[in-house]
């Protein structure tokens, strides 16, 4: 009887742990449109925003994700906000994007920008952007800081850019 009870208890614990870890890994992704992008870009506060434009099929984008994960973990949430703006096909959200984020254990916030006609919004992000991925915009309205990078970033560079973004000009 005692053994049976112990086994049962063990099974329940395993199940609880399993459910708990899976529930916490389940990634939610908000699907956004142009007004969302507009509102982020015109936000007036002293937070530094890091907007990384990426897609799961973009090899250099995937390669630099750990850089943003590290920045997201290391920086103060109120001072710096990292947002990964995904550009995958919205139909592939459940099939491709969510499993990808869970597998890579991405903790940074992710939104899916569902605006196929990129010609309408690329220039809003930066007029110098060709449309090539990956691309990253770093800005802080309080310090009037703004840098746009149309290539892969490494952590050292991102870290320096973030530090500079908080310095009043």
């Amino acid at each position: 009887m005692k053994i049976k009870q112990s086994i049962l208890l063990l099974l329940v614990s395993i199940l609880t742990i399993f459910l708990f870890t899976h529930a916490s890994l389940k990634k939610e992704v908000q699907v956004v449109k142009m007004p969302w992008l507009d509102s982020i870009l015109s936000i007036q506060n002293d937070t530094t925003y890091v907007l990384n434009f990426w897609a799961t099929w973009c090899i250099p984008c995937v390669a630099e994700l750990p850089v943003f994960e590290k920045a997201n973990q290391k920086t103060n949430r109120e001072a710096t906000k990292v947002i990964l703006i995904n550009l995958d096909y919205v139909k592939d959200q459940q099939k491709v994007l969510i499993p990808f984020l869970e597998k890579k254990r991405i903790k940074t916030s992710v939104v899916l920008l569902n605006e196929p006609d990129a010609n309408r919004w690329i220039n809003l992000v930066d007029s110098s952007w060709s449309g090539a991925l990956p691309a990253t915009l770093i800005f802080n309205h309080k310090t009037s800081y703004r840098t746009f990078i149309e290539k892969e970033l490494n952590f050292e560079l991102l870290d320096t850019l973030l530090k500079n973004s908080h310095i009043n000009k």
């Binding site: 010609n119 690329i122 952007w129 060709s130 449309g131 991925l133």
Partner: peptide, 10 residues
């Protein structure tokens, strides 16, 4: 002149 998303040329 228009712009589109694409893969950056390596």
């Amino acid at each position: 002149k228009t712009k589109a998303l694409g893969c950056s040329i390596k």
